[in-house]
């Protein structure tokens, strides 16, 4: 029983971070219908700037720089590349982000060289034991931060001008434009937010508690696991992203123990495949209708 509880704790802790990543996918998708394959490289980029600036700015300052630079990179990608390819459709733009992902990832990995810097100085590897269950401090902080950010996001989404504009745009782009909503601003903000979420997520990922390794190509692989999280929740559902993240975390933890560890990585993708076969738009996604 203790084993089971511990696994659930492990799974939820990681799921919180997957939710942050998945939310990033969803925000961009809702605003632009583009699936951002470069999300993993945003994560790496933010982490890399933390590594570079940590010496001079200290951990807190460097973390802020990392979050900000991931956000700005995302913004730059949108403004300088995607916005200029207006003629291309969403699928082509998704392919473009694959190309970007390759470039940014290879360059960051090259710059990291052989070092595997850990980013979780403040709380890493200092677990708390409660009644036979170990709580990893990184997971706890990640859960708290995710809860705050996700709540803030939901509130902004519902009540702020940006949220209203974005929902309008997601409903019907042309009508939104007619209502005077500036599509470019909504889109740019969405990328900015997604980049910032990636920058936050990396602070938890590149830790002993979460990934067991510092910033590296592996960090990018982990970001890849947020894909099934976003997809199985439904790419256009923010609530789905949160649920999807937690499902992926739990599926990974439980299948590692009760099926086999080497199956666990495939397990999250298979869960996604099953969900998609039953509900082609994910658990909470909007059903598609065909237009003739």
């Amino acid at each position: 029983m203790n084993t089971f509880l511990q696994l659930v704790v492990n799974g939820l802790g990681k799921g919180a971070v997957f939710a942050l990543l998945a939310l990033g996918f969803v925000v961009i998708f809702k605003a632009t219908e583009v699936v951002n394959f470069a999300h993993g490289s945003l994560v790496l980029f933010g982490g890399y700037l933390v590594v570079v600036t940590r010496e001079s700015l200290g951990w807190v300052g460097a973390s802020l720089v990392g979050i900000l630079s991931a956000a700005l990179l995302a913004l730059a990608v949108e403004r300088l590349l995607l916005a200029r390819a207006r003629s291309a459709d969403a699928n082509s733009l998704a392919l473009l982000t694959i190309g970007l992902d390759v470039i940014i990832t290879e360059e960051v990995v090259r710059r990291l060289g052989v070092t595997l810097p850990f980013l979780g100085e403040a709380w890493d590897a200092q677990p708390i034991q409660i009644g036979g269950i170990t709580l990893f401090r990184t997971h706890l902080v990640a859960l708290a931060v995710s809860a705050v950010l996700i709540t803030a996001f939901f509130l902004a989404f519902r009540y702020s001008d940006w949220g209203v504009a974005m929902r309008a745009q997601a409903e019907n782009r042309e009508a939104a434009a007619l209502m005077g909503i500036r599509s470019s601003r909504v889109t740019a903000t969405a990328w900015l937010v997604a980049g910032a979420l990636a920058g936050v997520a990396v602070l938890f990922i590149a830790t002993q508690d979460f990934s067991g390794a510092g910033l590296s190509r592996g960090t990018h692989s982990i970001a890849l696991a947020a894909f099934p999280a976003a997809i199985l929740g439904g790419l256009d559902s923010t609530a789905g992203a949160v649920v999807g993240g937690l499902v992926v975390g739990l599926a990974e933890a439980l299948s590692a123990q009760y099926i086999s560890f080497d199956f666990s990585k495939s397990a999250v993708f298979l869960v996604m495949l099953v969900v998609l076969a039953l509900r082609p738009s994910g658990l909470f996604g909007t059903r598609e209708s065909t237009r003739v």
């Binding site: 699936v35 969403a90 495939s266 298979l270 495949l273 998609l276 076969a277 738009s281």
Partner: peptide
Amino acid sequence: PVAGRLRGIYLGVASLSLVFLGLYLGQS
């Protein structure tokens, strides 16, 4: 049959799961 139900990017990511399936089967 699975592919037939999915469109665009959903299909792309769903098909990615076959690569992971291959990884697992190749090993086991």
